[in-house]
Write a protein that binds this DNA or RNA. Structure first.
Lengths: 191, 191
DNA sequence: ACGGTAACCCTAACGGTTAGGACTTCACAA
DNA sequence: TTGTGAAGTCCTAACCGTTAGGGTTACCGT
């Protein structure tokens, strides 16, 4: 009698999806991304290959399963900052938090996996770019525009550039500050 | 007796490469990128499939054949600007020229082709990113550093972001100015 | 003139991805 | 309660970009 809002069907689907993603990530971490085929993942997860692609658009998407959360945090930083902080300030804080989390135990292994494969790195870029498009909308709103201008999109891309650069920097936190200093200057110039 | 510096072998290789790229681009423009397979291109160009991949690293690379020139122009703008103009100024001028060229007769059809395919758009992003890495080195030098810092890389990425954004903007020239205003502000803040 | 090698060829395969079509299981209304 | 439609899954066979293996020809430098 606790939470039966979602039917069995929906629960089963979510469970299948999770099982596939977990199985795949585990195999990738253990044996290397390129050394594990989709057919193997499907077999290990005890589903058909077509089922894998019913849940994930590509092999790479198996790895970046839960990336939607990152996007939402950025959006929230821009839309939810009070009057005390400016949007760039709020973004800087949130970015520091996010980049800091990348240093965790499991995260390190995860990002090492990503770095090991060209395809995963490419997919990562595309992911940030998707997030940049969403962030541009939030920035436009924050700057009081009904629709996104070139400036908004440029600023959003600039901000999202933090992740690749921070990951490859010796001191990620310092990289965040370096880039956000530039962003703040550009943001001010746009006002 | 005019210019026999290069041997027959080298000339033939270049000719083959050119023939493949021309054939492929023609077919893509006529029938659509996704509707033309590599095997077809090879047959039409009268070469083996393996020969196609001996000259081009991927199907997408067939389309972006001569992109190296763009990169060199940007580098030259940063390294070759005199004392009269700043590097951002020189970049802005060069970008205006380059973006202007995209509006030409054949260029329009070319970019429409690129826009028609997800894979080509993705490849385009990767291409700009490659150029950004090279540009970062030039920027670092211009700013008097022996090696590229996070700031240099961020600025380079920001500049290269002009192309995708200008192409999708209603007024590409205005987009260049908008973005370069931001870049100039960031550049100044970094000094 | 000749040995080495660069450019090219053919065939067969690999791995991600998708189409086609069938089967089972759940949701929901009659 | 039962019937019906849709959703989730399955299997098979293929498509397409890409590569490995191994061979042939044509050019270049000595």
């Amino acid at each position: 009698m606790t939470e039966q809002q979602v039917g069995r069907r929906e629960r089963k689907k979510a469970a299948t999806r999770q099982a596939i993603a977990d199985t795949a990530l585990g195999m990738f971490l253990e044996r290397g991304y390129d050394n594990v085929g989709i057919r193997e993942v499907a077999q290990a997860a005890d589903v058909a290959v077509t089922t894998v692609f019913a849940h994930f658009a590509s092999k790479e998407a198996l790895v970046f399963d839960r990336d939607q959360g990152l996007q939402e945090r950025l959006i929230k930083a821009v839309t939810g900052h009070g009057a005390r902080w400016s949007a760039p300030q709020a973004l800087r804080d949130e970015l520091h938090l996010m980049v800091g989390e990348f240093a965790g135990e499991q995260s390190t292994a995860f990002w090492r996996l990503v770095d090991s494969s060209t395809e995963l790195r490419d997919y990562e870029s595309k992911m940030w770019q998707r997030h940049a498009d969403a962030l541009a909308v939030a920035i436009a709103t924050d700057r009081g525009r009904p629709t996104t201008t070139t400036t908004d999109k440029a600023l959003a891309r600039f901000v999202l550039g933090v992740f690749p650069l921070a990951r490859e920097a010796d001191d990620p936190a310092a990289a965040v500050d370096e880039i956000m200093d530039l962003v703040s200057a550009a943001w001010a110039a746009a006002a």
